[in-house]
Design a protein around this nucleic acid. Structure first.
Lengths: 200, 200
DNA sequence: GTCTATATCCAGATAGAC
DNA sequence: GTCTATCTGGATATAGAC
């Protein structure tokens, strides 16, 4: 089998170009909005002609899907790279800061991951599974800290999503809602701990 | 002046057709998403040819702008049509229910009003002024009930927006986040009243 | 792998007849 | 007011040469 090493190098090159294409797509999405992305622009940005993109991705939605997956993998990596407090109050404050920061630092990414803004795109089941793993990672850490009620988690995601959504929609790049993150986490913590206390 | 009445009737007819066009646009936006709206579809739906739309609206974005204004006027009317409690806790509960309900009952409207999902559209200053009036209406009622800190209001809009956003994005038509509205309002009320108490 | 050429289709918008 | 005809310019995607 003399071909095996050749194939690997080709595969690596292929992957590298795919990555280049995705990077260009992100950059353009940041300036024109995710919905305004055009393959012609992406190709030009990479230095190839539009038809050549089809050697790397079978369709435009496949590019969106790869971007969606990439964003979620990024999030999973960052979650794994950190140490998380075990104490519930500290954990909630850290997670709130983390997610609001992540959600606001790239508007295009936020729209793609958390809003349904592209008419005909929905993530493949493989990509969506990554999004579910993000939730599962958080769910486990919250459960370990004593927060287990699914409804409590839904209220939590709403609170965090709301801060990021208001910040990105009304003042992208600013900190008007970003700076309320700690207070929001405190409010929520007081609330769930209060409920627990009352139940005893 | 024999022409005056004629002009009025023409103007009325004109307005009526404009309204028809907007209604068709809303219906199509609900099925295809706001971003997927096409003037050809709108025209077909109204029973005219695409170029005829331009007698009523100068551009596609003008249609979006009219929809944006219409949605905000709708919201203002509904606010004015209701009686609002004066007690802060009751007011917050009522407002939360009202806004989350309004935000979740029409996904297209929510995207157009509160998300920046259409690449080249931003509301005209006239239309945006309506959106500001909505906030102002609420701000005044909250102030009368004792809630005056702008940061407190921002936290409130984030909380309400978050519930609506999660509901529309992850389970449109369902009530998984909708049913957390009262609890969210309670949490928030306890929080702001707690701060006030501590300050005294 | 990348290209040219092209298919196909659609969009938003305008000119001008009726 | 509405139409036909058309402009202009985009888009995604495919065929097939190199």
């Amino acid at each position: 089998m003399v071909e095996a090493p050749t194939r690997n190098r080709r595969a690596e090159r292929h992957e590298a170009t795919r990555a280049e294409i995705l990077q260009a797509a992100w950059e353009l999405a940041r300036t024109q909005g995710v919905g305004g992305l055009s393959l012609g622009d992406v190709a030009r940005h990479v230095g190839i002609r539009p038809p050549s993109l089809y050697w790397y991705f079978p369709s435009k939605n496949a590019i969106y899907d790869a971007m969606f997956a990439q964003a979620n993998r990024q999030l999973l990596e960052r979650i794994a790279a950190r140490e998380w407090p075990e104490d519930l109050r500290e954990l909630l404050r850290a997670v709130a800061r983390f997610f609001v920061q992540f959600g606001t630092e790239d508007v295009a990414r936020y729209q793609l991951m958390f809003q349904r803004s592209i008419p005909d795109f929905e993530p493949s089941s493989e990509s969506y599974a990554l999004a579910l793993r993000v939730l599962e990672e958080m769910r486990e850490r919250f459960a370990a800290a004593g927060l287990k009620d699914p409804a409590d988690l839904d209220l939590w995601t709403a609170l965090v999503a709301g801060l990021a959504a208001q910040q990105t929609a009304n003042q992208p790049g600013g900190d008007r809602w970003l700076r309320l993150t700690d207070e929001a986490a405190e409010m929520y913590t007081d609330h769930v701990l209060g409920k627990k206390g009352a139940r005893r």
